[in-house]
């Protein structure tokens, strides 16, 4: 366990960074707009982890006050992220609405095909 200690200490951070980078990669590399939105939500969920992980205290419990409980995890990040999730789905719906309209106008949701159509129009 001694050898594992530095890995354990930062494992949450590394997974958070992995999810963040994966989301960023999908947003930049993929041309499909639904895929881009999925990448954006990957990025978003990694931010949930980024906020919640430092608030956890090992041996603690959820921040609901009860008898015979000494250690609680930090409630503040939970509050911030709870609202962020609902706002996140609302903005995702807005993005999907734009995708639907783009699909209706261009008949495709691939970025490259839209660019070629635009070039042909000129």
């Amino acid at each position: 366990m001694e050898v594992l200690q530095p890995i354990l200490a930062h494992f949450n951070h590394w997974i958070t960074i992995f999810l963040m980078v994966a989301g960023l990669y999908v947003v930049v590399a993929r041309g499909n707009m639904i895929k881009k939105l999925i990448g954006l939500s990957l990025f978003q969920t990694s931010v949930y982890l980024l906020y919640i992980s430092p608030g956890k205290i090992l041996g603690g419990t959820a921040p609901i006050i009860g008898d015979n409980i000494e250690v609680y995890s930090n409630p503040l990040p939970h509050v911030l992220i709870l609202t962020a999730i609902v706002v996140g789905v609302a903005t995702l719906a807005l993005g999907l609405g734009l995708v639907v309209r783009i699909n209706e106008v261009y008949g495709t949701i691939e970025e490259d095909e839209i660019f070629t159509q635009e070039d042909d129009d000129e």
Binding site: Y48, Y72, S73, L82
Partner: peptide, 11 residues
């Protein structure tokens, strides 16, 4: 696991 039960429910 990270004790964020409210957030887990929302997610």
């Amino acid at each position: 696991v990270l004790d964020a039960v409210d957030v887990a429910m929302t997610e």
